[in-house]
């Protein structure tokens, strides 16, 4: 199969390309900077119609990972990359006769700050999301699934909190903050949270590409199916990185309120780096978020191969090998 992967420089992107190449698919990658993955490469933005058109030409399938995933930033940038980028790609893919399309989404498209306990994949709802990222991804998912057709079935895959070796999103942030002594637990730290080991997420995306013809229009949450308390997650991640960490607790209400203030200040001062905590992450880390995986596993005929225990071992080995 000829497959276009966008956003291939990300941790999952690389793992997806590895898997496709390994099984003999002909892969093209599209991202802004050079990826150096040993496959056909097109550099540019998903919002650039010409580049996108050339990227999708003669492809059988698309796995669309490219997105702006920052916690803060301008709403216009989120709309441009996450919403317009997706619609551009969808239209181009349809015109090019692409026969399957996997949109990589996020469980945050379907809910705000409430606890999710054994939840399924509810429909994306931009009105209930919190944060620019989730709202723009929700809009894009709605558009993507609406574009699903007999000729080009579209599947949305929502991996929850992806972690893995080389992850800059969650692992690095947690470890950095622990090193700096500013990794508190929000509330009791006992909220159960699902995570997804990156290799399993990549497997799921490849499975979604294969199963797309049967699943057009469906959204599926992907996780390792091993929810853990935030406390344990932090303890495992810092232990793997060899960082001493002892939990200190911040009351939940204080953290959420503090997070929103910080977000607003950051917005106003147009700082480019990340605030220490956002209302979104405060909520994420103090309410339960774990999912019913039965439909996902059945639909994708997929199982996580790497358990969290094994994942943490791999992570520890990785940090040990670092100078």
């Amino acid at each position: 199969m000829k497959v276009l992967v966008t956003g291939a420089t990300s941790m999952i992107g690389r793992l997806v390309v590895e898997r496709l190449v390994a099984r003999g698919d002909v892969v093209t990658v599209l991202q802004r900077s050079t990826a150096d993955l040993g496959v056909r490469e097109i550099n540019g933005s998903v919002t650039d119609h010409e580049i996108v058109a050339s990227a999708v030409a003669e492809q059988d399938g698309v796995i669309h990972l490219a997105a702006k995933v920052d916690i803060v930033g301008d709403w216009d940038d989120f709309v441009s990359i996450n919403v317009e980028g997706t619609t551009t790609l969808l239209a181009a893919a349809r015109d090019a006769g692409v026969s399957r399309f996997v949109y990589v989404s996020s469980p945050s498209v379907a809910h705000g700050g409430e606890s999710l306990i054994g939840a399924g994949a509810e429909p994306a709802d931009p009105d209930s999301t919190s944060g620019h990222y989730a709202t723009s991804k929700a809009m894009a998912e709605q558009l993507a699934l609406a574009a699903s057709s007999e000729y080009m079935p579209v599947v949305a895959i929502r991996p929850h909190l992806v972690i893995g070796v080389g992850d800059t999103q969650l692992v690095e942030r947690v470890v950095d903050r622990a090193t700096q002594g500013r990794l508190p637990l929000i509330g009791s730290g006992l909220a159960l949270v699902d995570t997804t080991w990156a290799d399993n997420a990549a497997d799921a995306l490849v499975a979604a590409l294969d199963k797309a013809p049967e699943l057009g229009g469906e959204a599926l949450v992907v996780s390792n199916g091993e929810p853990r308390t935030v406390h344990e997650l932090f303890a495992r991640l810092t232990a793997a990185a060899g960082v001493d960490w002892s939990p200190r607790s911040v009351p939940r209400a204080v953290a959420i309120a503090g997070g929103s203030v910080v977000e607003q200040v950051w917005d106003r001062t147009s700082r480019e780096d990340e605030p220490p905590m956002t209302a979104f992450s405060a909520e994420q880390l103090s309410t339960a978020h774990w999912f019913d995986q039965s439909r996902t596993r059945e639909a994708l005929d997929w199982q996580p191969v790497v358990s969290l225990a094994e994942g943490f071992e791999r992570l520890a080995a990785h940090y040990e090998s670092q100078p």
């Binding site: 606890s115 306990i117 509330g187 009791s188 006992l190 909220a191 159960l192 308390t229 939940r252 103090s286 309410t287 339960a288």
Partner: peptide, 8 residues
């Protein structure tokens, strides 16, 4: 209750 994000 604790694992929903409450306290022990």
């Amino acid at each position: 209750a604790a694992l929903a994000g409450g306290s022990l």
